[in-house]
Simulated scan of single mutants.
Amino acid sequence: MNAGQHFTPRDPDFAVRVRAGFDAQPMMAFIGATLSSVEAGRCVIELPFRPELAQQNGFFHGGIVGTLADNAGGFAGYTLMAADAGVLTVEYKLNLMAPAQGERLIAEGQVLRAGRSLVVSRAEVYVLGPAGKIHCATMQQTLMTMHGKGVA
């Protein structure tokens, strides 16, 4: 994912702010997700499988896959916003490309373009299981920078 692209964050303490924002989301704690990596323009979120997160065939539910993708892309965008800003998803498109059958989901969010008010990011979601690491979903989203609305 755009490995050669380099972003300069507006907030030198972006990683602390992003981790605090992640920790302030009850949804992430509820499903058991963890923020495993934070870099300027990039975030990785992981989620171990539990039966409560499955659909009727025993795969991770598509809503859970979408939730992880949305948060990985959103927090990737949030790394490049000002210290007093908040982030809000405006829209996203999710392509589910393979059943998310396995022990763990990994969502890798990456900023494609960061503007003053709008950020475009994407996330690639992988499932780890007996068949190895399978690319199960791709998401592209638009984020809105909420100036002066940071997490309290």
Rank of each mutant, 00 (worst) to 15 (best):
P99S: 03
K133P: 00
P130I: 00
A82W: 01
L112M: 13
C136M: 05
E91M: 02
A137M: 10
V111P: 00
G109Y: 01
L80I: 06
N71I: 13
G86V: 12
G62W: 11
M97A: 12
A131N: 14
I64S: 04
Y126K: 13
V90H: 08
T89N: 06
D70I: 06
N71C: 14
R122G: 15
L94P: 08
G109L: 02
C136D: 03
E103H: 12
A131C: 00
T67M: 14
E108F: 04
M81A: 14
V87P: 04
E108M: 06
H135P: 08
V65H: 04
L128W: 00
A107S: 12
V119A: 02
G62V: 10
A82P: 02
S121I: 04
A100K: 09
H135Q: 11
N95P: 03
V87F: 13
A72I: 12
L88Q: 14
E91T: 04
A131V: 09
A100H: 10
R104C: 08
V111R: 00
L88P: 04
V125E: 01
F75A: 08
A100W: 10
T79R: 10
G132C: 09
A123D: 03
G129A: 03
L94Y: 07
G86R: 11
A72V: 12
S121T: 10
L68D: 02
P99L: 08
L68A: 02
T79L: 09
V65W: 06
G77W: 09
G102H: 13
A72H: 12
V125D: 02
T67W: 06
K93Y: 10
Q110P: 00
L94S: 07
A82K: 09
E108L: 05
I64F: 05
V111K: 01
A107H: 11
G115D: 10
P130Q: 12
G73W: 07
G86F: 11
L68P: 06
G74I: 13
L112G: 08
F75K: 09
G86Y: 11
A69E: 00
A107V: 08
V111F: 02
G115K: 10
V111M: 02
V90M: 13
S121P: 01
V125A: 02
V111I: 02
A69D: 01
A72S: 13
L88H: 06
F75I: 08
V125S: 01
E91C: 00
D70T: 10
I134T: 15
F75T: 07
T138P: 03
S121D: 13
F60W: 05
R113F: 01
L118V: 15
L88R: 13
C136L: 05
R122Q: 15
G129T: 03
V87Y: 12
A85S: 15
G66S: 14
